[in-house]
Amino acid sequence: MRTLHSDVIVDAVAKMCVSANRYLPEDVRRSFAEADAKEKAPAAKEIFRQLTENYELAEKSGLPLCQDTGLAVFFVEMGQDLRIEGENIREAINHGVRKGYEEGKLRKSVCDPFTRANTKDNTPAVIHFDIVPGDRLRIGFMAKGGGSENMSRVTMLAPAQGWEGIKKFVLQRVAEAGPNPCPPTVIGIGIGGSFDYAPILAKKALMRKLGDTNPDPGLDAMEKELLAEINKLGIGPMGLGGVTTSLDVKIAVSPCHIASLPLAVNVQCHSARHEEVEL
């Protein structure tokens, strides 16, 4: 049994909240450069120029990349041979969020759904826990913006609709969202599981690096096929036209009920802010 003090978690989470909001990940920077090289339209190229200047400026000035520093979403994999001392793990993660969002001058964007009163410290975070073999703790963090989240959808398709039905729903969703979610977007797709599990799969898929390869060759081919289709829509960066409506598509699947084909589409903005740490 390994023991880890909660203070380590608090500090690691606080640090991730700040750095993910200030430093655009390398995979996203590379993706911008590759997409820009493919664009011919001046408006699309101008958006990539501004986004590049923006991440350079954020890194230099310490300002967050975007004023929407997100709802804090975590994927936690806790080894079953690990014991946490001090605060319980949920409290430690929320403590880290409070600390990171305050010290990093990040916007507090969480409120009561009815009164809309701001909780003033960006908590509670949304935390997905998983118990895994071993004695390590992996914490994945995503600063999830509201504009792109609002464009996300979940649906229960009939099994007969299959892959063609899935593609159609995703394409209609991306087309309808248009310029709203800050394209070029990243599209996380969860297929299977249940009504509640499909969106978790979709969100977790967004934790992957842009431009990586899905370890399942079949899914990898589907991701590439769907990305090519999405980019035929011509919405382009910020909806001003171009060949880059999305930077990437990520698919995660899980077996489902014989009656169902759950599908979730989680839309992420161009600045796919995410980080992971292992403790």
Partner: peptide, 22 residues
């Protein structure tokens, strides 16, 4: 349509891009 992030020391305002208009 903007909800800026807090102003750091020495600046009038934090990050301040647009939110979705609809």
């Amino acid at each position: 349509y903007v909800g800026p992030s807090p102003a750091p020391e020495g600046r009038p305002i934090g990050s301040a891009g647009p939110t979705t208009s609809y």
